[in-house]
Amino acid sequence: MPAQRRQLAALNPIQQLQAGQVPRRLVQLYLGLILYGASMGLMIQGNLGLDPWDVLHSGITKHLDVSFGTVVIAMSFVVLLAWIPLRQWPGFGTISNAIVIGLVTDLTLTTVARPDELWLRAVFMVAGIVVNGLAGAMYIGAQFGPGPRDGLMTGLVRRTGLSVRLVRTTIEVIVLGIGWLLGGVVGLGTVAYALAIGPIVHVLLPLFTVKLSVPAVPTPSPQPQEQPEA
Score class of each variant (00 low, 15 high):
Phe92Gln: 04
Asp116Phe: 00
Ser221Cys: 00
Val214Phe: 00
Gly41Asp: 07
Ile95Leu: 14
Asn132Val: 05
His63Thr: 14
Leu11Pro: 10
Gly32Asn: 08
Asp150Ile: 10
Ile60Met: 09
Val22Trp: 08
Phe68Ile: 09
Ile140Arg: 03
Thr70Gln: 04
Leu120Val: 14
Thr170Phe: 15
Val173Cys: 01
Met1Thr: 02
Gly179Tyr: 08
Ser76Pro: 02
Phe124Ser: 00
Asn47His: 14
Leu107Gly: 02
His202Leu: 02
Lys62His: 12
Thr170Tyr: 04
Arg6Lys: 05
Thr108Val: 15
Gln28Ser: 10
Ile60Asp: 06
Gln18Tyr: 06
Arg159Val: 09
Val71Thr: 15
Leu181Phe: 06
Val72Ser: 12
Thr190Asn: 03
Leu8Pro: 02
Gln28Tyr: 07
Ala19Cys: 12
Gln225Gly: 03
Val72Arg: 06
Lys211Ala: 15
Ala142Glu: 08
Val186Met: 03
Thr111Leu: 11
Trp180Pro: 02
Pro90Thr: 06
Pro2Arg: 01
Leu50His: 09
Leu80Tyr: 12
Asn47Glu: 14
Ala3Trp: 08
Leu182Val: 03
Val78Ala: 13
Leu120Trp: 11
Ser58Arg: 09
Gln15Ser: 07
Val104Leu: 06
Tyr30Trp: 11
Gly41Thr: 06
Phe77Met: 01
Tyr193Asp: 12
